[in-house]
Amino acid sequence: MSSAILRCQRLTVRYGPTVAVEAVDLALTAGEMVALVGRNGAGKSTLLRALAGLTGHEGTVVRDPRACQHPRGEVRVAYVPQRATPRWDMPISVRRAVTAGRLPPGRRWRRAARTDGRVGGGALARLDLTELAARPVGALSGGQAQRLLLARALAQEPDVLLLDEPCDGLDVASVAALVGTLRQLADAGMAVCCAMHELRLARGACNRVIAIDRSVLADGPADQVLSPGGVAALFGLAGAA
């Protein structure tokens, strides 16, 4: 079995007296696509934010550069927030928004270098956004906006991709295209972990499903976790699968 590129142990997140995520153990491996499923408020977003380093937590989150498909001495983790998070009325083009992903530590004040332009251009092309590169971000449709957020994450050249409900509010065709792209990225060696409610998609596209309700209910192959008699069904998660 491959070693974990990102692993958390006993991860607990509290918001004041409320425990949002409790004692979660999980490991992500390069080349796998993992669906994180659970009811609203189960802690999916909080778990992803903790893994991305956005939320203070108890327990450990360890990144192992030796487990990367393309070892660079560090594990790069990219986080794609829910689509409502950015200020879409900001006067910037799609290209500039994607290039914002190329803002690594120590180069805060530097203009985009040639490499940044090349990598950003590649991310735009990968998500079929090249023709929209000059368009204002506020003029994008929901599906295009989601592709922009994914392109920005790809511009970070990540080893691990964490996505918070990227399919939310998209039409069927956009969801299929997005999930297809995520599957390709996983096949190319990226570790992809995606919070989602679309259980049929999770079963079809993901290697593994993790069902959570504050703590992990089940973690295993999609067919097993989402089966009619599986653990997730006990919590009303498998009904739509």
Partner: peptide, 13 residues
């Protein structure tokens, strides 16, 4: 630009 457009994402950087 990064912090105005998407402060959450900027924090991940």
């Amino acid at each position: 630009v990064a912090t105005t457009f998407d402060p959450v994402h900027a924090r991940t950087l």
